[in-house]
């Protein structure tokens, strides 16, 4: 039989992405022994926290967690406070500050709101030199102010590793996007057209459409190193490219596919009519191709 963790991951790939947190929690309760591996393998929606020192919002995820506390990228402080929480080395922290500022600009340009955070960690092996790793997380939520306004959320998690090779660096990027779009429509929300008057008497309509998804992609690239900030701009370009690609995939391929499947289930056009039409056409074509021999027989 397959590993329990494989079954958990298969299950998470099948169950609705909108209920990831609840389902991961249930799995953790059933198999506490596999909790760590599961939490490392399944990306969950990011939580927005407020930095107590600066009042700025940041994102909480497994990567800035120490016990029950989360580290803010702005003040470098843990919330709730802990004494010996893991923090990056001062050299790494300097790059982390720069990276947070750069991705804050990126966030504003693409998300026009939302929250971003970057967390870096020092190389585990000291002989690894300056090969560090990190995560860039972005989140935006649209909260409707009335029932018929659209709602939605975008969460992206980009984990990267760097490996310096002389004047170049090799980057490995794993990106996950979690997306949810909800639209509610009802009789009150509908635009009443005069042409609709001949419609049904006393009719009422109400509905909700929820489109949600999560996907993960990987990419590996080499980029030149010019100075200490090169890593950030290199990773920035890779993440930008990846987010563009994944956003496009979700909108054009994934969402488009779900719409096509609806049309596979039900046809707007009358299939019977189409079938009859086809048969009629076949008959017509048949009668044309049959005619010459019939005529030749007649004339002969």
């Amino acid at each position: 039989m397959a590993d329990v963790i494989d079954s958990m991951l298969d299950l998470m790939r099948r169950l609705p992405p909108t209920r990831t947190e609840e389902n991961v929690q249930a799995l953790v309760n059933i198999c506490p022994d596999d909790a760590d591996e599961l939490l490392q393998s399944v990306d969950q929606p990011l939580q927005v926290m407020v930095d107590r020192a600066t009042g700025r919002e940041y994102l909480a995820c497994d990567y800035n967690r120490d016990g029950e506390s989360y580290r803010s990228p702005w003040s470098n402080e843990y919330d709730p406070p802990i004494d010996d929480g893991a923090v990056p080395s001062s050299k790494m922290r300097k790059i982390e500050i720069q990276a947070n500022e750069a991705f804050d600009t990126y966030r504003e340009m693409y998300y026009e709101g939302g929250v971003s955070s970057v967390f870096l960690w020092d190389p585990e092996d000291p002989s690894g030199g300056s090969n560090f790793a990190g995560v860039v997380v972005l989140k935006k939520t649209m909260t409707p102010t009335s029932v018929y306004e659209p709602a939605g959320s975008w969460d992206s998690i980009h984990v990267f590793e760097t490996a310096e090779r002389g004047r170049q660096a090799h980057y490995k990027l794993t990106s996950t996007v979690m997306l949810q779009l909800i639209t509610r429509k009802g009789t009150e929300g509908e635009v009443k057209l005069p042409a609709e008057k001949k419609g049904l008497e006393n009719s009422k309509r109400d509905g909700e459409v929820s489109l949600s998804g999560s996907m993960t992609r990987q990419s590996e690239q080499d980029w030149p190193l010019h100075d200490s900030s090169s890593h950030i701009s290199n990773i920035g370009r890779m993440i930008e490219e990846m987010e563009i690609k994944m956003r496009n995939l979700l909108q054009e391929v994934y969402f488009g596919k779900t719409r096509d499947i609806v049309y596979d289930l039900r046809s707007v056009d009358d299939l019977e009519k189409a079938r009859r039409q086809k048969e009629l056409q076949k008959e017509l074509v048949g009668s044309f191709t049959k005619r010459p021999p019939t005529e030749s027989r007649k004339s002969g």
Partner: peptide
């Protein structure tokens, strides 16, 4: 009610519900 699942290298789901009522002429 419509439920669609597309899961090629991902997990994308559509879930819709729509209610309607009208008088019989």
């Amino acid at each position: 009610l419509i439920n669609i699942h597309y899961y090629e290298q991902g997990n994308v789901q559509l879930a819709t519900s729509h209610t309607v009522s009208f008088d019989i002429p």
